[in-house]
Amino acid sequence: MPIRLADLPRRRYGMPGNAACPGCPETMGLRYVKMALGDNVVLVIPAGCSSVIQGIVPKSGINFPVLNIVFASAASSAAGMEAAFEMMGKNYNVVVWAGDGGTADIGFQSMSGAAERNDNIIYICVDNEAYMNTGIQRSGLTPYGAWTTTTYAGKTEKKKPLPFIMIAHNVPYVATASVGYPQDFIEKLRKAASIKGFKYIHLHAPCPIGWRFDPGLTAKIAQLAVQTGVFPLFEYENGKFRLSSYSGMYRNPQKRAPLAEYLKLQGRFQPVLKDPEKLKGLQEEIDAMWRWIEMLEKYGPQALK
């Protein structure tokens, strides 16, 4: 059911006065989690920007109860909490809120384990495409060609296709979302909360500091990522793949906004804009993702077999 803004309560969902940078996509995203799931949530947060955003004891700048936990095992801690709640007969949403490092790299093992066990949690990967908390180092989810402090001349490897890897885990629900499309994200969160088992939502989260853009543009760049086909929005629910309505029209490359529009707003893509070979590599990375989509649409769960 489409979300109408006017219907959302007037309450304060976020927690102002936190330690996030101006224009931070993570605090945006956390507000949407609150809008979607209300107060029936416990967050598990591994090391990352969100550990810092909370600010200083005895206050916390994230408007949820939180178990902060070591970098590598957020999904396991969430599984433990969920097991405890189940034993007590409580029906809370245990939500992991982790960055791309905590999900795709150092935290991958524990997340993959929780997915395989089908632990009843919602796992949100807040993908800002580099290790921002430590100062913009490349991650497994940094796009091809992008500058980071450890890929001075642009990343030479392609972005790990994590949402598809999670689909291959055959969990009940996988979705991509973007802070540029809050209603879509909220809808997906609500759906996830209604499903039992492991739910994975990959949230695209442009970082003004790490991507080198004006902090006023966070939402705009997130939208451009969708409109250029860089970050397609989709859902995979019980074996059925579906491109989300916001991305539907961008299946056709002709209808997409020009990639350069997305790239030129971000300082990190200078190496790509200067070098046609790198641009080609980035385009291949995007094309590969759409081939995944095509295959999943065509074969559904059979694509995995």
Partner: peptide, 16 residues
């Protein structure tokens, strides 16, 4: 899937 997760899950359950 690992001991790191074993204690992390135990801690999560205990914290809950």
């Amino acid at each position: 899937e690992s001991e790191h997760s074993a204690l992390a899950a135990t801690l999560g359950a205990a914290a809950a």
